[in-house]
């Protein structure tokens, strides 16, 4: 399997774990403060994490099946549906953010002919229309994060702004995923960078007292 695609897939569980950590922290905040917006944030990151993990597991399952071209054609509609489900979960997560704002490595040496179609399957997970909607909602979230940073000029707000900026740029790459897997790879790497910004913010918060 192509190295770029392999790396792209590997970033998904990492991003999912970071997403779950942020979700847990937001939930803890909600339990203490009863602030409903923190609950929405918790739900949003939970859905993002589930979406990333599901895509990773589904794709891993398809690899495990040693999927062939005829089988892929038979499963195509189901894979397409899966892609819509994952993207929809992300969309719901972004809507929640907008409201809340005031792979496992296997041996790919054998069956190389069958595995040649894997990039095609992976790219199907990125539905252009849903990516476009994601971009629109994230654009709104980004604008709110920017306004917040301008008013507060605080380090943690900047990290959140950078995180959402990376999400926005990654979806821009995913929108054109059909043009080549290199774009998916770039998108995944930028998405990972976004999660790292969120993780840095969490670390700063945890050390702030």
């Amino acid at each position: 399997m192509d190295g770029l695609l392999f790396l792209s897939i590997l970033t998904e569980p990492v991003c999912a774990v970071i997403s779950f950590i942020i979700s847990y922290y937001a939930y803890k905040g909600y339990r203490i403060s009863s602030a409903s917006k923190l609950f929405l944030l918790h739900l949003g990151f939970l859905l993002l994490g589930v979406s990333l993990l599901l895509r990773f597991i589904t794709f891993g399952f398809l690899i495990a099946l040693r999927i062939s071209e005829p089988l892929f054609q038979a499963l195509r509609s189901k894979v397409l549906l899966g892609g819509i489900v994952f993207s929809s979960l992300q969309l719901i997560a972004y809507v929640l953010f907008s409201v809340s704002y005031t792979s496992k490595a296997e041996s790919f040496q054998e069956n190389g002919k069958n595995l040649a179609i894997l990039p095609g399957i992976y790219i199907i997970f990125f539905n252009p229309l849903l990516e476009l909607i994601s971009l629109t909602i994230l654009g709104y979230v980004l604008a709110r994060a920017l306004i917040l940073f301008i008013y507060k000029t605080e380090g943690n707000s900047l990290l959140v702004l950078l995180g959402f900026t990376c999400f926005f740029i990654s979806h821009l790459f995913f929108l054109f995923a059909t043009l080549g897997e290199a774009l998916v790879f770039l998108g995944q790497m930028i998405q990972l960078l976004g999660y790292i910004f969120f993780l840095i913010m969490l670390t700063r918060v945890a050390r702030s007292v």
């Binding site: 922290y25 937001a26 803890k28 905040g29 203490i32 403060s33 602030a35 917006k37 923190l38 944030l41 809340s100 704002y101 005031t102 709110r144 994060a145 917040l148 507060k152 605080e154 943690n156 707000s157 990290l159 959140v160 913010m201 969490l202 700063r204 918060v205 945890a206 702030s208 007292v209």
Partner: peptide, 18 residues
């Protein structure tokens, strides 16, 4: 107090007042 301060800093980063 310490936990609340952490949560406050976290929420503030997302513009959520608590």
């Amino acid at each position: 107090i310490q936990e609340f301060r952490r949560i406050q800093a976290f929420a503030k980063a997302f513009g959520i007042p608590i």
